[in-house]
Amino acid sequence: MFIQPWDASLDDAEWQAWIAEGHDFGLLSVNGLPGDAPMTVPTHFTGDGNHLLIHLARPNPVWRTIEHDPNVTFTVIGDYAFIPGPWRAKPGTPPTDGVPTSYYAAVQFTCQAHLVDDPEAKAELLRRQMTHFQPDSDHAPVAVDQPPYGRMLSGIRGLRLEVTDVRAKFKYDDHKPVEHRTSVAEALLARGQGLDVPTARRQLHRLDRVGPWKS
């Protein structure tokens, strides 16, 4: 992932807070077997210290590739929007001369994958995920010897992704003048399609912290 200086995370707290806001769905990317293309799997995840926790169905073909090569990448993308060219035209130039771009936030984790097959370890992984996704505990106990989850554990495998590196990108034209960034955020709020509103909020959040860009 190419990151310009003005697109970089301002500090670790920025990307950590962004993930904690509810960005808990991403793309697991694994190296293919010799002669095969890389494989990707979209999935929810939860954090556990320096690990990401995932579970997938046992028949998923991704397991063979992970067993062959445990070096994986997990990418989370959000707060994205297409920015039309006229919104980015320089002052005094025709709007049609503006060059469009994409705004987005992305956090990319480089990881070592550790398989989780022990039934109790899988149950604990699921309990941690349930605590995150269903904090009201409105679910049956996740226990090896109790239905309904006990009998389902054999149908899944768990993954503990040990994070070895994190790269975060917040691409919101932070190198442009304050007036430009403010006007684009206002245009996003007015358009209000897709993820326009959270994209505008993210841009304004960065604007508050960055102010005028200084190289």
Rank of each mutant, 00 (worst) to 15 (best):
L161G: 12
L161Y: 09
E162H: 15
E162P: 07
V163T: 12
T164S: 15
T164E: 15
D165P: 15
D165T: 15
D165M: 14
D165C: 14
V166L: 10
V166T: 14
V166P: 11
R167M: 13
R167Y: 08
A168I: 11
K169C: 13
F170E: 04
K171L: 13
K171E: 13
K171D: 12
K171S: 13
K171F: 13
K171Q: 14
Y172D: 05
Y172I: 03
Y172H: 10
D173E: 11
D174P: 07
H175R: 10
P177D: 09
P177L: 09
P177M: 10
V178R: 10
E179I: 02
E179Y: 04
E179L: 07
E179A: 12
H180S: 06
R181S: 01
T182D: 02
T182G: 00
T182K: 02
S183K: 08
S183E: 11
V184Q: 04
V184S: 03
V184T: 05
A185Q: 01
A185Y: 01
A185N: 03
A185R: 00
E186G: 01
E186I: 01
E186M: 05
A187K: 11
A187D: 05
L188Q: 00
L188P: 00
L188V: 00
L188R: 00
L188H: 00
L189D: 07
L189E: 14
L189R: 14
A190T: 06
A190G: 01
A190N: 09
G192P: 00
Q193K: 13
Q193G: 06
G194S: 15
G194W: 14
L195W: 05
L195I: 00
